[in-house]
């Protein structure tokens, strides 16, 4: 198993304790395309933060690729994030004063890869996502779909073990949403990238092979969805 969570608990203590994750047990294998679904406040974002080593958990165990992720130093956490995890965010989170190619290069910069090498690699990934002619453009000159593709290129460039996508279509129109989800699916099939998508849209979840429902801090039903027929994209959901 690539990811193993055993009895993970997380309580936020902002004035009054809030038990967000109440004993999560979850395993995800290499090459899976999984979505975590839940309403807002269900704890899915917290779970994502823990999976992405952005946040700590209180009790339980989180194993990532055979390594126990617990009580890491900031430095170690940064290193694991850099090498093992790629992030795709709802609001793209590209750095506005950097061009597309510079944004894609950034994770390699923090790995200490030489300038020419990381530039060449970044161009290669942009090319693969069909953004070659946008390489020198700044994020505010691009459409939402293009921005998200740049973000995906940035997530891919370090060959991470997993890619965590937090509402990757949240800021996109439905047509682009389909494109982005197709792209993610294609990456999963062709490059065997392990993908975890957090969403509250069933249409998005339906594009994945496995849907993990989370409710009130516990894992509910785990739906196998290899046929992608749980619900049609946009159908029976509140879609844009």
């Amino acid at each position: 198993m690539l990811i193993e969570l055993k009895g993970v608990n997380k309580t936020y203590d902002n004035g009054q304790p809030l038990h967000v994750l109440k004993g999560i047990d979850l395993s995800i294998d290499r090459g899976e395309f999984v979505s975590i679904m839940g309403a807002s406040g269900s704890g899915k974002s917290t779970l994502l933060n823990i999976l992405g080593i952005l946040d700590n958990y209180d009790t339980g165990e989180y194993w990532l690729d055979g390594r126990l992720i617990k009580d890491l130093s900031e430095r170690q956490a940064a290193d694991y994030r850099n090498r093992m995890i790629g992030f795709v965010f709802q609001s793209f989170n590209l750095i506005g004063f950097k061009t597309a190619v510079e944004n894609v290069e950034l994770p390699l910069f923090y790995q200490g890869v030489s300038r020419h090498k990381r530039h060449a690699l970044a161009m290669e990934y942009l090319d693969r996502l069909g953004l070659t002619e946008w390489a020198k453009h700044y994020p505010n000159e691009m459409s939402g779909g293009q921005k998200q593709r740049v973000a995906i290129a940035r997530a891919l460039i370090t060959h991470p073990q997993i890619i965590l996508a937090d509402e990757p279509t949240g800021a996109l129109d439905s047509k682009t949403s389909v494109e982005v989800m197709d792209l993610l699916g294609q990456l999963n099939r062709e490059e065997k990238v392990t993908l975890i998508v957090v969403t509250h849209e069933s249409g998005v979840a339906n594009c994945t092979d496995k849907i993990i429902h989370i409710k009130d801090g516990v894992i509910g039903e785990i739906e196998m969805n290899a046929q992608h027929n749980a619900s049609a994209f946009g159908a029976s959901t509140i879609m844009k």
């Binding site: 290193d79 989170n93 994770p107 790995q111």
Partner: peptide, 16 residues
């Protein structure tokens, strides 16, 4: 803050 947060998320150490 956001920019620095992004940098941290994609692997910048506090030292960076």
């Amino acid at each position: 803050t956001v920019e620095i947060g992004i940098r941290r998320a994609i692997g910048a150490t506090p030292r960076d």
